[in-house]
Design a protein around this nucleic acid. Sequence first.
DNA 1: TTCATCATTATGTAGGACAAAATAAAAATA
DNA 2: TATTTTTATTTTGTCCTACATAATGATGAA
Lengths: 234, 234
Amino acid sequence: MASKNLSKDIEKIAPSTMADVVETRLREYLKRKAFKPGDALPKELELAEALDVSRNVVREALSRLRMLGMIESRKKRGMVLAEPDILGGFERVMDPLILDQNTLQDLFELRLVLEMGLADVLYTRMTDKDLKELEQIVGKEINKVQKPFKVKYEIAFHGKLYQMTGNETFMRFQNMLLPVFEYVVSEEAKINGEAKVGKVTHRDLLELLKTGGPEDFRQGMKEHLSPHFERMKR
Amino acid sequence: MASKNLSKDIEKIAPSTMADVVETRLREYLKRKAFKPGDALPKELELAEALDVSRNVVREALSRLRMLGMIESRKKRGMVLAEPDILGGFERVMDPLILDQNTLQDLFELRLVLEMGLADVLYTRMTDKDLKELEQIVGKEINKVQKPFKVKYEIAFHGKLYQMTGNETFMRFQNMLLPVFEYVVSEEAKINGEAKVGKVTHRDLLELLKTGGPEDFRQGMKEHLSPHFERMKR
DNA sequence: TTCATCATTATGTAGGACAAAATAAAAATA
DNA sequence: TATTTTTATTTTGTCCTACATAATGATGAA
């Protein structure tokens, strides 16, 4: 299949610098030696000597790992392996304005998939307290037809759903996808006019949560998101 | 709610270094000035001077952005903003052995959600060729009961499903989640014994794809993954 | 024994130097 | 004049040295 995005298919000619090499070497080393969080790493100078590069290069590589949260370092005590922040790297590059169109589209779809798959986890974890909070959100939402308000409650409602899964990573993830989602929708609106709204409202979804089962909720959600699904088909 | 994971709730005391500051400053700068891919960045020395730090520090920060694919640089030509690799940062930290237990669990659930949400995109995009390939995979799978083979075809089948979505990001994402999934399952097996298999097989799922609709497929998938869902409830 | 002081050590930051590559400018050739 | 070759320049990549800083351990004084 001839892909639309060449740069994804053909590997970029990367004039790999020493820092690049050292970075992967270090990661390999940590993996091979089965380093665990808390373990102390060799000193910068030792690494530099062992790899036969300058301390400078080692530091550039370490700086990268430090950004990802893989290592922490304090003066004199040296560096220790840490539990990385799984979404940190994601967060930093999640900017609709610099991502290419295909990736944006991919992420848009990803969120749709997440919403559709949410039901089962939701029914496993949700509490009465959650439902009450959701009730409040829906309650405040009525009669808000202006754009900024609509968006605000859209985020509040769906955000609460993710929160109800009790899955922290999940929630952060969706929060990061939000700007992308909004961007894609608004861009689309510029071309094809304002998107229609699905027949199923937030209140309907809440009602389904209270009285229905996962399947009912999922069908409701599908209807709620139907304009976006329509868009996807093109 | 008292969380199980303290380090996620309380912000880590981060003795932020110059490189940290410069990194965020740079990202802010790029965003504020609405840099687009292809635009040339100021020279290292100019940045160093403007920020009043050594070129060394600037380079450490730039090295981070370079790792994320946000910038590319060539000698003499300087640096240009590039389209970052959205999953690059993810890929680098996706190691079951260094991620904490909660995050692993979160990612495990994330994959379950993805599988459940897959159906609609799948029915929108799948081709006859896809189904034939899936047929082949299922065909080779029969009579393979030994562990390593089972895992292999498990990956092949589900991997193909993701590929059928035509969503590159999606596919890469699931590929990265695989090691986590396997790890969690095998760890679980050590404690509670080998997990049972769902009643719905890959062949059944394929049949559903051919003859049924999204809802049927989803129900099948839910059954197929039911042992994992059971595990989740605890 | 306890507290204060000092020495040591590893990371963090600064600055200078030069190599290498890519470009622009200048010179030489057809 | 047009084109190729050579030279100069510029910017990143790498190395080195030096010192500040903070945490640790050792030493010595009360």
